[in-house]
């Protein structure tokens, strides 16, 4: 690694400094600003812990965090359960030359706008939407069901998105498995079920974990899907944060709530850290 000339020490720093400076100025510094803001009083300034104590003492704020965690947990579990068999079918049952096309088709709705995709579920679930019209038309129900503006709608919108995401990570993981593992298991007398449970499933755990972590982070921080599909009946944390900015202009409280939300995500990250290393090839 010898680079001649006097610039041999300056060059590497010149390469990495712009990215580091950007991250410091527009990620670390805003984070510090948000931390300080969370410690100031909305009226009159001055240092205070009131914003944090408000979260811990006001049950409606607590409720939002509980809702967030519940929705995220439900979405993560349902998405994994739906995506795993699908990824397995794509990897094992679909002929090799059709797999790329099958996968592209499966993730096609990814390419609509995220906002529009949530809105499309509203078309399906609304009072006069497709499902209610179909069910009343068939005479199965007399009155339209309340599907939109519920937790069910939020979960459906999320699951729709994360099944696609998890299918991608699990599919990639399944394709990396060498067939010799399965052959070895078969040679040693294991049936297909046993091979799957004791060989394939443990080896695809990293793919599941990466997908589950992404699902957790994206789901718990998302404002769009709960706001469009869940409505205001049952708030989640991002809705609570946005509400402080929008209605009251209460930046300190919004900052404190954001920091609390971020702390929860950080705990999840530390729990999954060993699965998520970025390594050079």
């Amino acid at each position: 690694m010898s680079v001649s000339g006097s610039n041999s020490r300056a060059l590497p720093w010149a390469l990495v400094t712009p990215a580091l400076a950007w991250t410091l100025a527009f990620f670390v510094l805003p984070f510090i600003a948000m931390g300080l803001s969370g410690l100031t009083a909305h009226e009159g300034g001055g240092l205070t812990l009131a914003n944090y104590s408000q979260f811990f003492t006001d049950p409606s704020y607590w409720r939002a965090m509980v809702n967030s965690l519940e929705v995220t947990a439900i979405v993560t579990v349902i998405s994994i359960l739906l995506a795993y068999p699908f990824a397995w079918i794509l990897a094992e049952q679909v002929p090799e030359r059709w797999q790329r096309l099958a996968l592209m088709l499966a993730v096609l709705p990814f390419w609509t706008s995220y906002v529009v995709r949530s809105y499309s579920w509203l078309l399906v679930l609304a009072q006069n939407g497709v499902i209610n019209r179909a069910l009343t038309g068939l005479g199965l129900i007399a009155e339209p069901l309340q599907l939109a503006n519920t937790r069910f709608a939020t979960v459906t919108g999320f699951v729709h998105f994360f099944v696609m995401l998890l299918t991608l990570t699990i599919f990639a993981n399944l394709k990396q498995l060498s067939p010799s593992y399965r052959k070895a298991a078969a040679d040693l007398g294991a049936g297909p079920v046993r091979t799957f449970l004791h060989v394939v499933l443990p080896l695809t755990l990293p793919g599941i974990m990466v997908g589950a972590f992404l699902t957790f982070v994206l789901c718990i921080g998302d404002y769009i899907t709960p706001q469009i599909l869940g409505g205001n009946n049952e708030l989640v944390m991002p809705q609570l944060v946005m509400m402080q900015i929008g209605r009251r202009g209460d930046f300190p409280l919004a900052s404190a709530l954001s920091i609390i939300l971020m702390a929860v995500v950080t705990v999840a990250y530390l729990a999954c850290a060993r699965w998520l290393k970025i390594e050079r090839a």
């Binding site: 527009f26 990620f27 805003p30 984070f31 600003a33 948000m34 803001s37 982070v217 994206l218 718990i220 921080g221 998302d222 404002y223 991002p238 944060v241 946005m242 900015i245 930046f251 919004a254 900052s255 954001s258 939300l261 971020m262 995500v265 950080t266 990250y269």
Partner: peptide, 13 residues
């Protein structure tokens, strides 16, 4: 590892 919401909030503040 940080939600877009929090990045946006930080920059807003």
């Amino acid at each position: 590892t940080v939600s877009y919401l929090i990045i946006g909030m930080g920059l807003l503040v």
